[in-house]
Nucleic acid binder design. Structure first.
Lengths: 260, 260
DNA sequence: AATGTTTGTTACTATTATAGTAATTTAATG
DNA sequence: CATTAAATTACTATAATAGTAACAAACATT
């Protein structure tokens, strides 16, 4: 055991990255004080970090109003980090193949903390196109979230429920804690998860886990999404479970190899 | 003037980012010592930075061989930095419009130091599909590079030539310094640049600058690329210069507004 | 299995970088 | 022009990092 584990953790780097990750599609421009407040870093230190990022080209500063935006270096690094992520490169052909074979909408995500990180997605035109965020909190209301919860260690699951504040996203969203717990229990025995219009009205999804077979832990999930107009839940379960599980097992192989 | 400007630059953050940017499509996996050598940071500090990145989820460490790969957080940040880059979002519709109107291959890039950073690209099927790197050094051999050089301040251009070591990429690449200088001079008076099979055999390109009209500096360039089989240089100059310049002026408006 | 070799991890400080307060400048607003 | 807010700089105590060197673990070779 290390005597002082903190010695091998760079707080400055953590802060610098927390500054950089405040920028994105939703927030293309921010001010120094805004950054200082959001990160909780005092103004001078924020200034130092921002200044560094500007000098390195990760941010750029407007000459007029001093507002900050992403710079070319961030774009470049973004490209590399996105396309250089092996799991993304690995899951793409797997999902594409299933998509072209069966003509269904497919989604995939990794779990990070108790958040879903959207990985790769293919959508059929019959699905009301909805713009999903990259990070999602609502594990309890999504097929991918439910199957992940069902595969979590008991301690983790308990912790999740201890902090969970369910929100009624659609008329069908489960918000009663006991109901949600029962649903997860059922999901566990079933082996796949069902989201019956609980996240987005009119959309039914089924989900299966991406498992690391080596460590026997969940790393993420895949889901198949259907418009409720055209598909009944019964029909979906009859026709698509096998496809879902096959997809999930291929994804799990990938995860296991990659060691997520 | 600041007394000690270094006070407002975080070396730790710089190092941390230099570690992270060693990863990408070409280098999905690296070892600690490799990182230490490539960055020039001593092993203990590298260990600290890597450890930090692992703990934050930007990197992940293989349990078997301790090799390092990009983690979910890097993927996430990559996505945000890529799609949150306003210039990218701005240039896309401009290039798409021209692409669909005239059915020609179009490329765009920003300049960073003396390197081209690939921005957005649309390709016709008649062009031999070549996989371009994200960063390119060969300004002297590309249409986008030439027009950028032609618009550089004299001091910068001199510096560029003082370090330039031209490489014969195709039979038509100019490698004689004086010839290259003359070509840049000609480009300057012409107002657009010509790359006559100098970068890739069989491909002719014309380029125009993306100017910041406010600061009167070049921020990047756009180019139109043609297969030499189907188009003669004369035909291209007759038909496509107006289109190129219109495209470049639209892009310049964007750049000026964005303040690059 | 024992050996040497490489790579990764930890202990230990001197040195340096950063945090934080407060003052100052610059810009924005009425 | 006055007022307020935001950004930048000066200054220094404190905490974080760099760097050396020792140690452990993994790997290859004999």
């Amino acid at each position: 055991m290390t005597k002082n584990p903190n010695q091998y953790f760079s707080k400055t780097l953590e802060k610098g990255l927390s500054v950089l990750s405040l920028f994105g599609r939703e927030h293309p421009s921010r001010s120094l004080t805004e950054i200082s407040i959001l990160t909780g870093i005092n103004k001078t230190s924020t200034y130092r970090l921002v200044n560094t990022l500007v000098q390195l080209g990760y941010l750029r500063k407007s000459v007029n109003d001093k507002s900050l935006r992403l710079g070319p270096k961030a774009f470049l690094m973004g490209h590399e980090c996105f396309h250089g992520f092996d799991i993304y490169q690995g899951i793409k052909p797997i999902i594409d193949k299933t998509f072209f074979e069966h003509h269904i909408s497919i989604d995939s995500a990794l779990i990070d903390g108790f958040k879903l990180i959207s990985l790769y997605r293919r959508e059929m035109p019959n699905l009301v196109s909805f713009h999903l965020p990259l990070i999602m909190d609502e594990l309890y209301a999504r097929a991918m979230g439910k199957i992940i919860l069902a595969n979590l260690a008991k301690a983790d699951l308990d912790q999740y429920f201890s902090i969970l504040k369910p929100v009624k996203l659609t008329p069908d969203t489960l918000v009663d804690l006991d109901e949600i717990k029962a649903d997860i229990q059922e999901t566990k025995t079933r082996g796949y998860s069902i989201n019956n219009k609980e996240y987005i009205p009119g959309i039914i999804s089924i989900g299966a886990p991406m498992m690391n077979y080596q460590t026997r832990t969940v790393a993420g999930a895949v889901s198949l999404d259907f418009p409720a107009r055209e598909y009944s839940l019964a029909a979906i379960e009859r026709q698509y479970i096998a496809i879902l599980l096959k997809l999930a097992s291929e994804a799990s192989e990938l995860i296991t190899t990659a060691g997520i």
